[in-house]
């Protein structure tokens, strides 16, 4: 298969004369054939192009043949050559640089800290890429110096990007005060448990009354051994309140809606005065509301979610 050649076309009355000349000049040709009465085509390697043009004035190049000839024709033009050299230079120089740094972790405050640590170790956008050993050394160095803040760190190269994964140092839960058995302080229907320690005695949707045992502080094993484990956590249940208000109102000309809104606000704030983070009023139903002259009568039913084990 010819790698770099030209397809020529030549008009000749007598092909033997042309072939004599070709033989004399020791030119190689391929696929010589007659295409019309006095016209012939053949393929010849690119190195004989000049010789053929000198020998035969009427020879024409129909097309280039072979993959190398396309490349050679491109390189004929100075601009192509210059463009190729510049692009190769840019490719080599730019592909040896870092163009992106991804920091992935579980603490926003540590993100910036880690980026600064990378900067002090010459890892930044535009800097030269480092090899695997150098990255490993830097990773170990950052981890060793900041062991009290960072639990896990990995620095990896992925093309022209550096991926940094880290985990913040976890603090142990010390100073936990475990309690004894947990009893219900109010009536309610169990909604959920949030326990770190203890053995449940009731289950979800159980109705409990004040004083009922909710969580035991002793664990009984399969061999009937009793182990003290203590209790720690909360038991959330649905609780209910009936609120009745019967009072005189100061400004009798106020509208009903305003009176009601003010009363509701006051009642709700009273109910939720001692609520903690996970306690809330989940439902409110108005049973009766009446305004007569200067007296207002309101009856409300509230359903709340409360920690019935808290003191």
């Amino acid at each position: 298969m010819i790698r770099a050649g030209n397809l020529y076309k030549i008009r000749a009355f007598d092909i033997s004369y042309i072939l004599e000349k070709i033989k004399k000049e020791k030119i190689k040709i391929y696929k010589l054939k007659q295409i019309s009465e006095f016209t012939y085509t053949f393929i010849s390697p690119i190195i004989y192009e000049k010789k053929l043009k000198i020998l035969f004035a009427n020879i024409e190049i129909v097309k280039k043949v072979g993959y190398l000839s396309i490349l050679i024709s491109l390189l004929k033009y100075k601009t192509t050559l210059v463009a190729m050299i510049i692009s190769i230079f840019f490719y080599i120089s730019l592909s040896n640089r870092i163009w992106k740094i991804n920091v992935i972790g579980d603490s926003e405050s540590l993100d910036l800290f880690i980026k600064n640590q990378l900067l002090t170790n010459n890892i930044y956008v535009g800097a030269k890429k480092l090899d695997v050993n150098e990255l490993s050394t830097i990773q170990n160095k950052i981890l060793y110096v900041n062991y009290d803040v960072i639990e896990y760190l990995s620095i990896e190269e992925n093309g022209c990007a550096i991926n940094v994964n880290y985990h913040k140092k976890r603090k142990e839960n010390d100073n936990l005060k475990f309690k004894g058995n947990l009893y219900a302080k109010k009536d309610g229907m169990i909604k959920s448990f949030d326990l770190l320690s203890g053995e449940k005695v009731v289950k979800i949707n159980d109705y409990v009354k004040t004083g009922d045992l909710l969580v035991k502080d002793i664990l009984t094993t399969d061999y009937n051994q009793e182990i003290y484990i203590g209790t720690y956590g909360s038991v959330y249940a649905y609780t209910w309140y009936y609120i009745t208000v019967d009072q005189t109102i100061n400004n009798a000309s106020k509208q009903k809606e305003t009176i009601l809104a003010n009363l509701l606000l006051e009642i709700k704030s009273q109910i939720s005065l001692n609520f903690t983070e996970n306690e809330y009023i989940c439902e409110e139903n108005m049973l009766q509301f009446k305004v007569e002259n200067d007296r207002v009568y309101l009856k409300m039913h509230f359903t709340c979610v409360e920690d019935i084990a808290k003191e």
């Binding site: 072939l19 070709i22 033989k23 020791k26 190689k28 040709i29 391929y30 696929k31 010589l32 054939k33 053949f42």
Partner: peptide, 10 residues
Amino acid sequence: DLIIDYLEND
């Protein structure tokens, strides 16, 4: 459909 496939020297 005869073609001179290859020609070099003699």
